[in-house]
Write a protein that binds this DNA or RNA. Structure first.
Length: 817
RNA sequence: GCCCGGAUGGCGGAAUGGUAGACGCGGCGGCCUCAAAAGCCGCUGUCCGAAAGGGCGUGCGGGUUCGACUCCCGCUCCGGGCACCA
């Protein structure tokens, strides 16, 4: 047997062996404690890129580590295989989306397997498989039955590039499509929605208890956007039978309302606009309709063209005085009541508008003395010009103002959320069909479960018209109404692919369950996911939808009702940048892992990703990267020679400290590596392994006794196993026999973690001046005495008595001169 | 504008309030070799110094402390999120 390490042969052989022996398969009757480690399932983009490598390496370290710790780790893999790129490729003259997608799945799967990441492949899922489509549709019907799915006409985000509607979440803040970059238009269309808003409060409140990155939780909080305040009605002076209802977070400032505003979309606009104002109002409505969201949301541009007086007035319930009613595009039809009370003195937007239209500004909160005086003051302070609220602070005044509105029967406390219902219909082919038919007699009728799945027809033609090919496929369109048996038209919308990814992690618990979407026993065994790993890019969309779906499925009886949160712990790994930009296929700046697999092997590339920096931080793929990869490869060679090759003692080698010192290092390294893995400190874990390796070399050179070295190498290989699984396995088998990945994870013995003698630092005025070898158990008095006796200290004190001595034995003594 | 992160050698990065720069990359030197590669060993923050040794040093300015990369206050720059949401 050659001592040379044949990377390609060894890696291929162990990968086959893990698969053949089912090392990482788990089953329901597994007696070991169950746990669940999951990487976000990928959109199959073909060959893996470095981002995948990083993601799956991190996940794989945890799977292997926890397996060695004695857990039955559920580690499944699947593909988020519906989605626009496949369809766009077909339109451009490529293959059918199915062929295109499946070819790419095969490619990605090969890369993932080549990496040596281990999965229970029996559980592989693909969103576009008929089986998954069926359960997706069954879930949809259940949500429909419970009113959690509904159809409504709504102003929607239409992307002209993608020729489909987008969820609010898919529109970037600048009003462009997150995928194509086109400017998103507003259109009124009948669409399917999921009632995620029903869970707004729960989704918000439950965030606190999650072990997730704080910034992800913050993003979700912002997205849900809870604001508390009051809602109340104001009668229209000119037409007392009409009233305008407004929402405000600042009912305490009601006395300062000097005008009110309707959104251009508000249904009352037409009714309250007087004849002489009609021209102006009409012009504004036209403008608002024409304007893209970008223009409308921009604070640029002349304000005086963005509002108009309706000619009517409403009565301010606090003062009893009439105030003018305006219509303005800075008020959104889709939030709150679509109308506001305007308080220029305490709201900057209202202030700017009031200035442009010459409306009065009345302060109701006394600003602090140092307040610049220009513009609105939205902070806290004593109320003024506010009748019964005078003198109160904001909180007190709010409570009292709401009380006042309630007593008057015109209003009440109110909470509003920024979160809107989730628009799930897409006018595209390559997605899960929405399983309903439209019957001229019975309306919208769900397809009965016995007829599911509704599958996509294969024989379709993709044309660059932008219209879904389903709309012109006679065979697909033609259906029978399940109620009346008459002719009906099949729904041609498909589901947002985020629907697919909102429950796959639960299906993984038993992906072959044939009776229901979820096997509850299996779901209960593994859920929630203990470690969920993926990119920060999904901080809002996927993670919020998955949280919603987990709850909704529980509540409609498909999932376990008690499991509310899908991901107990979330880890977001940093991005990989190249040339200052995120590495991504769409930017065309990907570095393929394949050349690294060929040159240095999977272990070295894995080690690079683990070692390059903290997993949470972004890393730059730079000129230095290849050199570091080489370094990782070199390190593995060093381990290999130590374990399998010939490393011998060296004449004149310095004393390495003997077997006791080596044993202490074995245990301290074990402790460090274990703790580092738990906190995703993979870079420092690898550093610790390198230190131990260097140390073992020193001990070998210095002829430390073979038993201690043998023990050290064994532990090194065991600790290295999650990081460089192939080399560790091969070296371990050759040297010790047996399979390292089924060994028990080493445990640090605390007895070895304390040394007999340690180096004590002696400082004078906080500066290190000397180091003394002392017994670890040294007391304060003795440490002080030793420090004061130090030549350096004597010299620096120059005969004077120290003013103070701070002793922290056995680590440090600080002498204050 | 608001809310989060971050800033440490030539580079990637380590450091429960207690030896700043672990580990690695790069560089320099030595051993091995006919030679090279590989490997093994050592040095490598900066300034002064032949050396011993000493000064300075974690974005900037203050503060707390015997002692601050670490905690507090005030800035600068970089990255990210949110932003007419009433």
């Amino acid at each position: 047997m050659s001592d040379a390490y044949d990377v390609q042969e060894v890696e291929a052989r162990w990968q086959r062996r893990w698969e053949d022996e089912g090392t990482y398969r788990v089953d329901l009757d597994d007696p070991r404690p169950a746990s669940y480690v999951l990487c976000m399932y990928p959109y199959p983009s073909g060959r893996a890129h470095q981002g995948h490598v990083r993601n799956y390496t991190f996940g794989d370290v945890l799977v292997r580590y926890r397996t060695m710790k004695g857990e039955a780790v559920l580690s499944p893999f699947g593909f988020d295989s519906f989605g626009l790129p496949a369809e766009n490729a077909a339109i451009k003259g490529g293959a059918h989306p199915r062929e295109y997608t499946e070819a790419r799945i095969a490619e990605l799967k090969r890369s993932v397997q080549r990496l040596g990441a281990v999965y229970d492949w029996r559980r592989e899922l693909r969103s576009h498989d008929p089986d998954y489509i069926k359960w997706n549709q069954v879930i949809f019907q259940a949500l429909l039955g419970e009113g959690l799915a509904y159809r409504a006409e709504a102003p929607v985000n239409w992307c002209p590039g993608c020729q489909t509607v987008l969820a609010n979440e898919q529109v970037l803040p600048d009003g462009t499509c997150e995928r194509s970059g086109d400017v998103v238009e507003r259109r009124n269309l009948e669409q399917w929605f999921f009632r995620i808003t029903r869970y707004a409060e729960e989704l918000l409140d439950a965030l606190d208890a999650l072990d997730w990155p704080e910034r992800v939780k913050t993003m979700q909080r912002n997205w849900i956007g809870r604001s508390g305040g009051a809602q109340f009605k104001m009668a229209v002076c000119e037409q007392p039978e009409l009233s305008v209802e407004v929402f405000t977070t600042r009912p305490d400032t009601g006395f300062g309302m000097t005008y009110a505003v309707l959104a251009p979309e508000h249904p009352l606009v037409e009714l309250v606009t007087t004849g002489d104002q009609e021209g102006e109002v009409r012009e504004l409505l036209e403008r608002a309709k024409r304007s893209s969201d970008i223009e409308r949301l921009s604070s640029e541009g002349a304000l005086d063209k963005r509002g108009a007086f309706t000619g009517s007035h409403v009565v301010n319930p606090f003062t009893g005085e009439p105030v003018p009613l305006y219509v303005a595009d800075y008020v959104l039809g889709s939030y709150g009541t679509g109308a506001i009370m305007a308080v220029p003195a305490e709201d900057q937007r209202d202030y700017d508008f009031a200035k442009a239209y010459g409306l009065p500004v009345v302060r109701t909160v006394e600003p602090p003395a140092d307040f610049a005086g220009d513009g609105a003051y939205s902070g806290d302070g004593p109320h003024v010009n506010s009748g019964f609220l005078d003198g109160l602070d904001n909180e007190q005044a709010k409570a009292k103002a709401i009380e006042f509105l309630e007593e008057g029967g015109v209003g009440h406390r109110m909470v509003n959320y920024r979160l809107r219902d989730w628009l799930i219909s897409r006018q595209r082919y390559w997605g899960c069909p929405i399983p309903v038919v439209h019957c001229p007699i019975d309306g919208i009728v769900p397809v009965p479960e016995s007829e599911l799945p509704v599958l996509l027809p294969e024989d379709v033609e993709f044309r660059p018209t932008g219209e879904s090919p389903l709309k012109s496929h006679e065979g697909f369109l033609h259906a029978t109404c399940p109620i009346c048996g008459g002719p009906a038209v099949r729904e041609t919308d498909t589901m947002d692919t985020f629907v697919d990814s909102s429950w796959y992690f639960m299906r993984f618990a038993d992906p072959r369950e044939e009776e229901r979407p979820l096997n509850l026993t299996a779901v209960r065994k593994y859920m929630p996911v203990d470690r969920y790993i993926g990119g920060i890019t999904h901080a809002i969309l996927h993670l919020l939808y998955a949280r919603f779906y987990t709850r909704a499925l529980g509540d409609v009886g498909i999932g376990p009702k008690e499991i509310r949160e899908p991901f107990a712990q979330l880890f977001c790994q940093g991005m990989i940048r190249l040339g200052g930009r995120a590495m991504s296929k769409s930017r065309g700046n990907v570095v393929s892992p394949n050349e690294y697999f060929e040159r240095v092997g999977a272990d070295a590339l894995r080690l690079f990703h683990l070692f390059a920096g903290p997993p949470v931080e972004d890393i730059d793929w730079s000129d230095q990267t290849d050199e570091i990869v080489e370094g990782c490869s070199r390190y593995l060679g060093r381990v290999w020679r130590l374990a399998v090759g010939e490393v011998t003692s060296t004449a004149g080698a310095p004393d390495a400290g003997g077997p006791d010192a080596l044993r202490r290092e074995i245990h301290s390294t074990t402790a460090r590596v274990s703790a580092d893995i738990e906190r995703y400190g993979f870079n420092t874990a690898v550093a610790a392994l390198m230190e131990l390796t260097n140390s073992i070399y020193r001990h070998v050179h210095a002829s430390t006794d073979a038993a201690a070295v043998d023990e050290a190498v064994r532990t090194l290989l065991e600790l290295l196993a999650p990081f460089a699984p192939h080399l560790a396995a091969e070296a371990y088998e050759r040297r010790y026999g047996g399979h390292v990945h089924v060994q028990a994870w080493p445990v640090a013995d605390p007895a070895y973690l304390v040394a007999d003698r340690v180096t004590m630092v002696v400082q004078v005025n906080g500066k290190v001046r000397d180091r003394i070898e002392v017994p670890a158990a040294i007391g304060e008095d003795e440490a002080t005495a030793l420090a004061l006796a130090s030549d350096k200290v004597v010299e620096l004190l120059g005969g004077a008595a120290p003013r103070r001595v701070v002793a922290r034995p056995p680590k440090l003594v600080n002498v204050v001169a």
